[in-house]
Design a protein around this nucleic acid. Structure first.
Lengths: 225, 225
DNA sequence: TCAAAAGTGTTGTCCTTACACCCATGT
DNA sequence: ACATGGGTGTAAGGACAACACTTTTGA
């Protein structure tokens, strides 16, 4: 019996939440899109294997990585009985090194326009989206997708895309600021608008301290599942 | 590489939340306490394997069963490299058939007085407790632990034991009743008190419909992790 | 009649939402 | 000057938490 890891890698380009997929370079299913994955070696933990595989594709280390679910349908991989432990990863898309991706012919896809993927990877992606929404409704995990400096409008766009909903900006900024998690900077981002929007930084100390607490980050969490 | 299943089985005896453990009848670690587990067979899903194993120990079918986490430390089982997918189960302790348990020398332990257990089963139990608290804070999953008919004081005792906290009974009953999930019966339970407490039944239709919605079932969820 | 547990209502506070106008600047 | 997006305040309603007394009945 084989044990594999598959990584659902989320990124945010300022407009939309995206997923990183690779084009399989080998049979079976050569040429089709797939999650980044691999088999675990004999002396590594699952977490370690996921981090190793993620590094191979993106070049990134110290990534937010969380175990999602173990998928074990006996025929999920038609060639061999493989149990796959799926992880989801949140990365700052700007830190992602392009050249490494080209080795693997990787590509970012907006969540709404995903190509068809091999095996049960579609189920994995669906579950990852659901879990991300669930988690982000209470924990400030979406900051993992942003660069060090970001603006409130950028942050709001991210939440709006994750929840596919419009959010009132006055309520949003009040709620965010009231968490004490973000710190206003002196400089502004000037590309997005004429007036420019102030940058904010995450207060990493408070972020770690409050990560497990319950924040009410989105309006009407009733709408989740 | 082996893939195993381990089940964290919760029950509620009216006073305390309990865990079902078995005494291992074989080496290694013969005679020590352990979660109920087994290996997956070649043509079953993980969910199916968990249900099969659960039936072997408890005789019960159609049990609430949810995948918890995959544990893959390379040395977690010192004899062989085994990845274990842990499931947690919630059962009505009254339906549990004693005779089957005796075959396996199983025993219920209050969560606060667990014996030492083999391998990484302690970690699994800790994670299961945490996940149960998290889940039950928003979803009415604790009803799975109760018999068909139960009283409000029994339900409250269950919540109080799960969260190790006192809950105001006026607020508790109002909140529960406002969910519309439970239906008052005409008869009373007369053992627990002189006055007797009305029985309630779960409205299974609404239960299924609202299971994924967000209910605010416990006061101050801030105290969770 | 007394003890023990069940059952029930009200009020104040805070959180959440809905909503509209002014500001700064590049063109 | 004007169009574009950034930034801010207030009021009303709803949810939650704190709190105490009456009821029932078995012993």
């Amino acid at each position: 019996m084989l044990v594999a890891i598959d990584c659902i890698i989320f990124g945010f380009d300022g407009q939309h939440l995206k997923l990183l997929l690779i084009k399989r370079g080998f049979e079976p299913q050569k040429g089709r899109w797939s999650l980044m994955g691999g088999f675990i070696t004999n002396d590594e933990t699952l977490d370690y294997a996921a981090a190793r595989i993620l590094k191979q594709l993106t070049g990134l280390t110290y990534i937010y990585l969380e175990q999602l679910y173990a998928f074990g349908d006996p025929y999920r991989d038609p060639t061999e009985r493989t149990v796959s432990v799926a992880y989801f990863a949140l990365i700052d898309i700007n830190k992602y090194e392009e050249q490494i991706s080209h080795e693997y012919s990787a590509e970012w896809f907006p969540l709404k326009r995903l190509p068809s993927v091999i095996f049960d990877h579609k189920d994995m992606i669906e579950m990852a989206k659901e879990k991300l929404r669930y988690k982000a409704a209470f924990h400030p995990v979406l900051f993992e997708l942003l660069p060090e400096k970001f603006t409130l409008p950028q942050l709001q766009t991210l939440y709006e895309d994750v929840y596919d909903a419009m959010i009132d900006k006055r309520n949003f900024s009040r709620k965010m600021l009231s968490t004490g998690l973000i710190v206003k900077q002196k400089d502004k981002e000037k590309n997005g608008s004429k007036k420019g929007a102030f940058y904010y930084k995450l207060d990493k100390r408070k972020y770690r301290a409050k990560f497990d607490a319950f924040l009410n980050l989105i309006p009407n969490p009733q709408s989740l599942k």
